[in-house]
Amino acid sequence: MKTPYQILEVTAGADDSEIRQAYLQKVKNNPPDADQEKFREIQAANESIKDYRSRIRYELFHEQTLDFDALLDQAFGTDQPRQIDHDQFIDLLRAGVEAIELESITIEPEKT
């Protein structure tokens, strides 16, 4: 599975404007009419690393977008909130990521 950095062809240390230019270039070469899957992939990649906040979030939770099943198994396998280490926690606070991101993912049954 390619990382967003690979999809947009930018280095791991790329800043906002490098990512933005790479994104525009990718979109230009892959219009939504031509190949929707490819276009969606570019959009998702851009969403996950376009600014500092999203990059932090990506570092912390990148399984969420990449491996939905693993996330589900985790959510159902344990009642514990997700564990993060001290450094991640500090990063998270600094990034001002909403508290909701820290909660365990609860999945409520649909009413019938």
Binding site: P32, Q36, F39, R40, Q43, F68, L72, I107, E108, P109, E110, K111, T112
Partner: peptide, 11 residues
């Protein structure tokens, strides 16, 4: 276009 999923469980 966009595609998004969410999971639910039977009750």
């Amino acid at each position: 276009p966009i595609r998004k999923s969410d999971a639910f469980a039977t009750s």
